[in-house]
Structure formats: C-alpha cells, structure tokens
Nucleic acid binder design. Structure first.
Length: 294
DNA sequence: AACCAGGTTATGC
DNA sequence: GCATAACATGGT
C-alpha cells in the first residue's frame, strides 16, 4: 500500500530526517538513504512503514501488515508535526538577532514527537542525568528485551514495551542492563500506573498544561524537567519549557550568552519573546548543540 | 583523571 | 525550605 501526504509549508523532510538520524543509535526507527522505517501498532497488529519523499510530497509505504490508512497517516502527521503552521514561530525567530539564522539553517525542521506517552515518560526517565549515547543504549536493551519485534528483510524492528510488559518485572531484572536501581523502580511503577489507568494520555489531554504537570510530578521519578519534556514531546503542549535542562542551558549560553545556570526568571524573560512557541524554541536550541559536532 | 551528562529522590539541618 | 549525596557509566 502506498499513501501520499502533501507537504505543508515550512516543512523539510530532510531536516526531520536529520534529527531522526543525529549521531545516536535510536532503536525506535531506522534511517536509510531513502527515508525512515518504523514499526507501528495499528489495531493491535504490527505495521511496518517506510516514509520517503518525492516530487509529489511524502510517500508512506506499508512494507508489512495492513490496516486502515487513516491511523497511519495520522501517526505520520503527528510524529513529524505536519499539521502545524509554524510561520508565526519563524516570525518570532526573525525578531531575535542571534537566532534569526535558524529560519534558514534549520528551515522546515519540525518538533519530532513521541506520541506514546508511556514511551515518552520512560525515555525521559532513562535520559535523566546521563549522556545521550548511554541513554540510547539503555533504551535499546529495554526495548529488545521486552518490546515486540518484527523481522523484515533481515532487519529487526521494535515496538516500545507496553506497560503490561514492564509492570510485572522486578527492578533487579533491569540491573544487568545497567539501569540504576532507582530508574528501574520508577519505570516499573509507572508501568503499573498506566496499566491500572491512573495515568494515561487521555487523562492529561483533558487537563490544562499546569494541571497535567502537577499530576505528573506526583509520580516518583518524574520531576519538573521530565513532566515538561513529556508534555512537549507527547502531548505537544507548545508552551512547555524544560526547566533545569542542561542541554538547553548550554545552547542558550552559546547562542545568547546566557549564564551557565540561568534562573527561572531569566528563562521566563527570554521565553516571553516566544509565547506559545516555547517548546519549539527549546527544540531548535537543542538542534544547535549538534552544530559543532559535525 | 576529574568532571559533566537533555535530573530526581532521600536525607539531614 | 534549602543544600547535598547518591545514582551508573560513557564521553571529553
């Protein structure tokens, strides 16, 4: 099956692809010259898709499985944030002397989402306080052990583990994968809360951003940074700011001459210039962290 | 060879 | 309330 999705304005598939392929070994998708392959679950059945680009726009090919077209299109549009008009964000960027270059250098980059809230929370807990290379290794070990796998053309594609897959394991089971004892506990506890319905994307969707964050930070392992990260990457609440984020601070220091540890007030003053686009601003600032590496 | 990574909790004052 | 240690290991 072949699905075509027209490209929205201010969208660059290549920029999105760059993000998906930036120097890390992400087990949730595979990037090749043609595009990106990712395993989805549609109506409880595995569906492997390949997203590429041609003159007509985005081309989504279903390589394995079948299912209705709509949820596949919906996933792609949500994942690559295709349904958003980001022109207002670019207008704000242009007003910032130091950041205006992003509208051309990162033209069309979209905030790549993690639609599955459970995955987003687990991933942000895994990534706390450790370098991303190590974080991606931990995610891979967890996923390869507890996630569903599909083999296609000799390559393995994974779904992130479900809460039900993780709620009954013991923290000790994750220690050989080099999880810290605490991270193992947090992830298993959160799996239980998802499984019994205490936490879900639906619940948070019906709350204001501030209420949802308050709900999340009550959970062990989720602090202010994690709650904001999940709200931004999964629920796509664009007013979220990852306070306490070292990567954000480094980028602000390099790009804007900020202090190494800016206060919340300093951050709020800066982000006031990007009202309703705070999360996009954070995402574009993260993008700058790769500039010197390549 | 220290010191820092896309932080958070537990503990002590 | 606020400061500090512990976490587990890779990168620089």
């Amino acid at each position: 099956m072949l699905i075509r999705i027209p490209l929205p304005p201010y969208f660059s598939f290549q920029e999105c692809l760059w993000f998906l392929d930036r120097n890390f070994d992400d087990c949730m998708h595979k990037v090749s010259k043609q595009g990106v392959r990712k395993l989805l679950e549609i109506e409880n059945e595995p569906v492997l898709i390949e997203i590429s680009e041609n003159e007509a726009g985005l081309k989504v090919e279903v390589l394995f499985g079948k299912g209705p077209e709509e949820p596949i299109v919906q996933f792609v549009e949500e994942w690559l944030d295709m349904s958003r008009n980001i022109e207002p964000f670019y207008e704000l960027l242009k007003k910032d002397k130091e950041l205006a270059y992003m509208t051309t250098d990162f033209y069309g980059l979209r905030m790549i989402a993690i639609p599955d809230l459970f995955e987003a929370l687990c991933w942000s807990i895994i990534g706390q306080q450790i370098n991303l290379t190590f974080a991606y290794k931990l995610k891979r070990r967890l996923t390869e052990t507890y996630g569903k796998m599909l083999t296609y053309e000799g390559a393995e594609y994974y779904l992130f583990p479900k809460p039900e897959d993780l709620m009954r394991i013991a923290a000790e089971d994750l220690l050989p994968m080099q999880f810290s004892g605490k991270k193992a506990e947090y992830i298993i506890e959160i799996a239980g809360k998802f499984a019994n319905g205490q936490v879900s994307k639906e619940i948070l969707q019906n709350l204001s951003t501030q209420e949802a964050i308050a709900h999340l930070v009550k959970i062990r392992g989720i602090g202010e940074w994690t709650a904001n990260y999940a709200m931004m990457k999964s629920l796509k609440r664009l007013e979220c700011i990852t306070y306490g984020d070292v990567g954000l601070y480094n980028a602000l220091a390099q790009q804007k001459g900020f202090p190494k540890r800016p206060s919340k007030e300093e951050l709020n003053i800066f982000f006031a210039g990007f009202k309703n686009w705070e999360a996009y601003t954070v995402f574009y600032l993260w993008r700058t962290l790769a500039l010197k590496k390549q």
